[in-house]
Design a protein around this nucleic acid. Structure first.
Length: 663
DNA sequence: GCCTACTCACTTCC
DNA sequence: CGGAAGTGAGTAGG
């Protein structure tokens, strides 16, 4: 803010509408001197048309908050001296490997200013490594948004993995979400830094997020904790704040009966805060911005915080599009203090997002309320969760006959190529325990985070299997624990049957394995030919376009970066036919911009190791979004000229990156 | 440019 | 499972 105007005036009061302010009492917080007068705003709703807000509340009051005894520390001393972090107790009995990983880069230490600066500069270089230009940092698009989110979660997963393994040095084991966000922000791996009113390029209505930092790095909502984000506009000489986005939380009693309406409470007032005395909210900061936005009728982005049913202590954020503030008033909160209320109404002709969640809620309590329901469980109980079959586009009743089976069937006993009998752990396997043969095969890592999220793509993931002695609750059995989401098989408008989920899916989640009969004619060529003819075949020997999913190692100062290849490395080619028998995976369609990828997984059964194909989510997937993976390109058909080579299908994925055909 | 206050986080521990 | 407490990060404003 410029300091040149009116030296004696309080800066933010320059925008006051004085005609309004003169005849009202200020709204105050913790007011020992000016108790709320009886003429002050009363509780209850104001009649519409009456301007309920009183622009007041400037910095002149703020001294009431400051504690004169609170002194700033002498220069040169910082309050944020990193404390040594004790080893987590559950790790201590394990002989852990010496830490091969160093502290995170980024601005975690404030003790050395210059060092931080250098670190920032070198991190800035990295944004080009990741592929973000300065222009893209300012204004994004779908591709950049996806790239930034991918990098965020990859880094967060890796930090989580290191924390699980107890491999961090000083004090950075907690809050991988904040740390990852901080590193990315420092490195310039972010987008839409230009604050704006209205839509954010590259962020689509319905997109879901699992951390507030994700909203920050894509520029949807720049406050890491604050619920109201605003920008300051210049209107002549006046500056005024406008709200650009809000985050609503179910904890805040924000609900309305209509899915397109949101009743939002203003910020501060210690509403619902522990250990604090509730007090009146003031018309400043975010509240003032909302009030200004209500007068100017500008669009406000709404992000709804939802309870994550899979993990009740966590939250999921749903971008629900643009709203306008239709009404605002003052209420008395539970403790008798003043609370600002805003009624936001969703703008018409936007694709549905939050309302989809509400529909799913209904279907979950009563699946017959799902329109177009044909079968309540296509798996006939083979899965622990029912798999509904739905068609609300035409009259086709059933996908072609097949038997539901959840895993692989081998046509004949497999020759004993290599005999092995799994690990001998007498408890759940732990990362870093090189006595565990499974962990050792994974280069000392547990490939999954504690909640079963795949950390990195690997050439091959070694899971513990039925032959392993470790506890069945070992974290290294993710692909064997069955479906974790409420999937539905549905009829698409133009690509036959497809698969989607009623539940939100976070990046790296296990979707399903590719079940079916293993084709083994003893001859690679014959297997390939069968695979070509079989619409429901999965063939590891296709050419799969490479893509990056793992974190950028340079963003972490890892001495020996566990920079494993993202290329597949399969012991021997595998062809699986799901024509006669299979599971939900046989319904996944192809896309050139998929949201699911496959990962070879191997584990031991009956003293032999078997290869399986496991699918994981590539990114966060909102409910009711079709699940797709890249079918790859057949060797025999590659490098053909124009047109669609025989044996391939015209691609209808609609992606901007579409190759035109697949198979 | 540094510092501090403010905030509808998130995890872990009990 | 529910609540409490601790440890946090970006941004605005001084």
């Amino acid at each position: 803010m410029e300091g040149g105007l009116g030296q004696n005036s309080v800066p933010s009061s320059s925008s006051f509408d004085k005609s309004t302010v003169l005849d009202v009492k200020p709204l105050r917080c913790m007011l020992p001197i000016f108790p709320m007068s009886s003429q002050g705003p009363s509780s209850g709703q104001y009649p519409s048309g009456f301007a309920p807000f009183f622009p007041f509340g400037g910095p002149q009051e703020s001294h009431a908050w400051t504690d004169p005894d609170q002194d700033t520390p002498p220069s040169g001393v910082t309050l944020n001296v990193p404390m040594p972090t004790p080893l987590r107790s559950f790790r201590s009995p394990i002989a852990s490997t010496p830490p091969k990983h160093r502290a995170l880069r980024g601005s975690s230490s404030r003790s050395s200013k210059r060092k931080t600066q250098q670190s920032q500069e070198s991190l800035m270089d990295l944004s080009s490594v990741v592929g973000i230009s300065p222009a893209q940092r300012a204004d994004g698009n779908r591709e950049v948004v996806n790239l930034v989110l991918m990098e965020f979660d990859a880094l967060r997963r890796r930090i989580s993995q290191l924390a699980d393994a107890g491999e961090f040095v000083s004090g950075v084991t907690k809050r991988g979400d904040l740390k990852s966000g901080n590193v990315l922000m420092t490195a310039g791996i972010r987008t839409n830094m230009n604050k704006r009113v209205g839509a954010v390029p590259g962020v689509e209505i319905g997109d879901i997020f699992f951390f507030r930092m994700e909203l920050c790095v894509v520029g949807l909502h720049a406050q890491s904790m604050g619920g109201i984000d605003s920008l300051t506009i210049k209107d002549g000489l006046e500056e005024e704040p406008l709200a650009v986005s809000i985050v609503s939380s179910y904890e805040y009693d924000d609900h309305a009966d209509d899915d397109d309406v949101l009743i939002y409470s203003g910020q501060s007032g210690n509403f619902g805060k522990r250990d604090r005395v509730a007090c009146d909210q003031k018309l400043q900061g975010g509240n003032l911005a909302l009030e200004r936005s209500s007068r100017r009728h500008n669009e406000v982005r709404v992000i709804r915080g939802m309870k994550d049913t899979a993990n009740p202590s966590a939250k999921i954020y749903v971008y629900d599009g643009l709203y306008k503030i239709q009404d605002s008033w003052i209420e008395k909160g539970k403790h008798g203090s003043v609370v600002f209320k805003y009624k936001l109404v969703r703008m018409p002709r936007q694709r549905s997002a939050f309302s989809v969640w509400k529909s799913v809620e209904k279907w979950k309590t009563d699946s017959s309320s799902r329109t177009g329901l044909i079968l309540s469980d296509l798996s006939s109980g083979a899965e622990s969760v029912p798999v509904p079959l739905v068609n609300d586009v035409d009259h086709e009743r059933l996908p072609g006959g097949f038997t539901y089976f959840h895993s692989l069937r081998y046509p004949k006993p497999v020759s004993l190529m290599q005999s092995s009998n799994g690990c001998n752990c007498t408890k759940p396997c732990v990362p870093g325990d090189l006595n565990c043969s499974c962990i050792r095969r994974n280069e000392g890592d547990l490939p999954y985070t504690g909640n079963g999220i795949l950390v990195s793509r690997k050439s091959l993931v070694h899971e513990c299997g039925p032959t392993c002695r470790c506890f069945p609750n070992c974290k290294n059995r993710v692909s064997q624990m069955g479906l974790k989401h409420a999937f539905e098989v549905f009829k698409t408008s133009d690509r036959g049957w497809g698969l989607r989920s009623w539940d939100p899916i976070r990046a790296g989640s296990f979707i399903s394995e590719y079940a079916g009969e293993v084709i083994d004619k003893g001859n690679l060529h014959q297997n390939e030919e069968l695979a070509m003819k079989d619409e429901h075949a999965f063939n590891t020997n296709q050419i799969y376009p490479p893509f990056k999913w793992n974190h950028t190692p340079q963003l972490l100062e890892e001495v020996s970066s566990n920079d494993s290849s993202e290329d597949y490395d399969i012991p021997s080619p595998l062809v699986i036919s799901a024509k006669e028998c299979g599971n939900v995976a046989r319904f996944m369609n192809h896309s050139c911009s998929p949201n699911v990828f496959w990962q070879p997984v191997v584990y031991e059964e009956n003293n032999q190791s078997f290869l399986h194909i496991a699918f994981f989510s590539l990114k966060h997937i909102p409910p009711m979004t079709e699940l797709t993976y890249d079918y790859g390109v057949s060797h025999s058909d590659r490098a053909e000229g124009s047109g669609i080579p025989s044996g391939r299908k015209k691609c209808l994925c609609g992606s901007s990156k579409c190759r035109g055909s697949f198979g």
